[in-house]
């Protein structure tokens, strides 16, 4: 029973990481851009959700606002800053997008203050539900799992079945060629960037609802999202999905099980300490193992990229 609940926790965490990593891997794969400011877009979505939900009293409007605000912020940033960076090397991109983190963080602090904001769930989403097998589980965490799965399906359909998806895949394969074929590459990039931003903002709003909305909330998640992208293979949505679930499960189950296993050897306090540290190292061990066996990532397009 405990294991089932922890597995659901891992699944929920993985879905959240997927929402974050999907945008990152798209931008990385299609544009070859390292976007450190992705965590800021996650934060922007969370703040938009909190502000709109507080102003209108409707959580659903807040959630919609998180998508719109993060997409708008993403498009704006792409046009104003990112567009100038495609031809530059990765160091310039890292510097510029790191600067964006600082701008976003201070700007948000200026607008909303340093105090964390807290969202209240609508009654229809709050509380726990009984799952088959008698397990009680918070409804909203199930909703996050559902949203994550829906986004994964939607993205797969978008990439595999639509004209825009064809262009995105083509852009990934050879950007000069599709430019020469008459595709407006600048607009394509803006759309992809805004799409990634919207997903990050959506993830921020969902997570902000169960945790808290505060300046700097995006950076810890960003690091994990990069781990997911590396494990899954750069540019692969499928890889991001599998990688996110792997990381989510490994982290959650590691934290849940390791202290118990170690306490058979040591006393509770040190088993706890060592177990918790080992658990946080586990995902990086996972990344290292994947990189040794498949340097291009699980679903990467090839080592040459």
């Amino acid at each position: 029973m405990l294991l089932a609940e922890q597995a659901l926790n891992g699944l929920q965490y993985g879905m959240m990481l997927f929402l974050m990593a999907a945008g990152l891997t798209l931008v990385f794969g299609v544009m070859g851009l390292i976007n450190l400011a992705h965590g800021s877009l996650y934060m922007a979505g969370a703040f938009a959700c909190a502000a709109v939900a507080a102003a209108t009293g409707s959580f659903w409007l807040g959630l919609a606002a998180s998508l719109v605000a993060a997409a708008a912020a993403g498009a704006l940033v792409e046009i104003a800053v990112i567009r100038r960076l495609y031809a530059r090397d990765h160091l310039d991109q890292v510097l510029a997008t790191f600067a964006l983190i600082l701008v976003f963080s201070e700007g948000t602090r200026w607008l909303f203050g340093s105090f964390p904001l807290y969202l209240t769930l609508p009654p229809s989403l709050s509380g726990a539900v009984m799952l088959p097998g008698g397990l009680h589980y918070p409804l909203f965490r199930l909703v996050i799992i559902g949203f994550g799965a829906a986004v994964a399906l939607g993205l797969w359909w978008l990439i595999a079945r639509t004209r825009l998806g064809i262009r995105i895949r083509a852009g990934e394969a050879d950007r000069e060629m599709i430019g020469a074929l008459g595709v407006d590459i600048a607009r394509l990039y803006t759309i992809v960037f805004a799409l990634g931003a919207a997903l990050a903002g959506f993830a921020g709003a969902l997570v902000g609802t169960i945790q808290s909305v505060q300046v700097g909330m995006g950076e810890p998640v960003l690091i994990l999202a990069f781990v997911v992208v590396v494990i899954g293979g750069i540019g692969s949505i499928k890889g991001a999905f599998v990688g996110a679930l792997l990381v989510g499960m490994t982290d959650t189950l590691g934290k849940a099980l390791l202290p118990g296993l170690l306490s058979r050897m040591w006393d509770a306090a040190s088993a706890n300490t060592v177990g918790a540290s080992l658990a946080s190292v586990l995902i990086y061990v996972l990344m290292a193992v994947v990189l040794i066996l498949r340097p291009q990532g699980l679903f990467g397009a090839g080592a040459g990229r």
């Binding site: 926790n9 918070p138 849940a256 918790a276």
Partner: peptide
């Protein structure tokens, strides 16, 4: 049961599962 969490931790789903069990 005696559990140590991370400083600054924001998600307690794992600990709550342990409390429930």
């Amino acid at each position: 049961s005696e559990v140590y969490t991370q400083v600054g931790q924001t998600d307690y789903a794992g600990e709550i599962a342990q409390i429930r069990a």
